[in-house]
Design a protein around this nucleic acid. Structure first.
Lengths: 196, 196
DNA sequence: GGCAAACTTGCACACTGGGCATGTATCGTA
DNA sequence: TACGATACATGCCCAGTGTGCAAGTTTGCC
């Protein structure tokens, strides 16, 4: 998938990943607010100053994986056949993603659980979602030939993300008893149906 | 509405409001990240330490009004006649609120605009919404006689808030040309209708 | 008036984010 | 392969932040 990329780029990616992993590990062990940036850099063998070159703060370091997942989903939507409507493309992209990566890793569940306990994490995660929502609305508007500033594309994008978010929460609360893909299908079906 | 309350309580409320207003004023003047807590406490005539007794940080101070509005909406929903369904109660509460306070003040528009520019504000605002969402889901579940941990009450609450949030954004982007209440009715109608 | 509880304030301290200067690894090119 | 340019890591520094603690001060209540 990736063309051969320079050593410099690879090292950066490795460092970023190492910092991310170290942050998760420490946060799981002690809870994020008993982890300082100094702890993280010690675990990842970099200087505190370097940490700042990669992430603005520890929340970002922890949620880096989430950010990757978000970018991936967005790429998926953009890459769907152009004859699909906006909503179809959203459904297609999420199904494709679940099929590709199989059931999501426990790490994801762990990250999401951490978010529920820690307000500052939840906040940042939702902000990431908001960014995604805007991009999705844009993509949908292009597909359906509408104005991206209109309300319909935005409502579609937002409703879609709501369904994903709630499905994830349910999945985690059920201790991952059912496959996530099944729960997602349910929430997506529910939200696409009229209520009142 | 309020029973006579002690001097102490009144003073606290005044101080909190003063800090809140000072924060908004300064943030509008220079942008929130060119405002320090020291600036705020100077403007509000309190010590830096006291600031922390009221708010955890300047974002919270700025969004205090939003928090009030949220609590008010939640009270509204809880206070709706018990024969209304969850969704009806949501609609009723928001209409009641708009009718009571009339068209929302410019201050609200200003706050919301600030959020769009400043990521840390957006994050905190969305976290507040998440809190409200949980409570709304709870209230809906009670009305409709369902499990609060099931997906339907949550989807209703989330979809409702999505409609409000997007309506607000549209309203602001249109420079408040149309009444907010009208835009809200539109987004609520849209999201309650099937799509795909 | 006077005591207790609640609140404010100043101080101290660990932690954070980021600008700047300097050393070091990598890259592109001749 | 050598070398200049560039990107990156690091250390130092400093303003800003959040919070526990130990006073002082105001308010509530008898």
């Amino acid at each position: 998938m990736e063309t051969t990329v320079g050593l410099r780029e690879r090292k950066k990616a490795e460092t970023r990943e190492a910092v991310h992993q170290a942050t998760i590990r420490l946060a799981v062990e002690r809870g994020l607010d008993h982890v300082t940036v100094d702890d993280i850099v010690a675990a990842a063998n970099i200087s505190r100053r370097t940490f700042s070159n990669y992430f603005a703060n520890k929340e970002d370091a922890l949620l880096y994986g989430e950010e990757q997942r978000i970018r991936s989903l967005l790429r998926g939507v953009r890459g769907r056949p152009l004859d699909e409507s906006g909503w179809q493309a959203l459904l297609g992209a999420v199904r494709e993603m679940l099929a590709d990566t199989g059931e999501p890793d426990r790490e994801w569940a762990v990250r999401t659980s951490l978010c529920k306990r820690h307000p500052s994490l939840l906040a940042r995660q939702l902000a990431n979602h908001a960014g995604l929502e805007r991009e999705l609305a844009q993509a949908i508007a292009e597909r359906d030939g509408e104005d991206a500033r209109g309300m319909r594309p935005r409502l579609l994008a937002a409703a879609f993300l709501v369904a994903l978010r709630i499905a994830t929460n349910v999945w985690i609360e059920e201790q991952e008893a059912r496959p996530l893909s099944q729960i997602i299908e349910e929430t997506l079906a529910q939200i696409a149906r009229p209520f009142g």
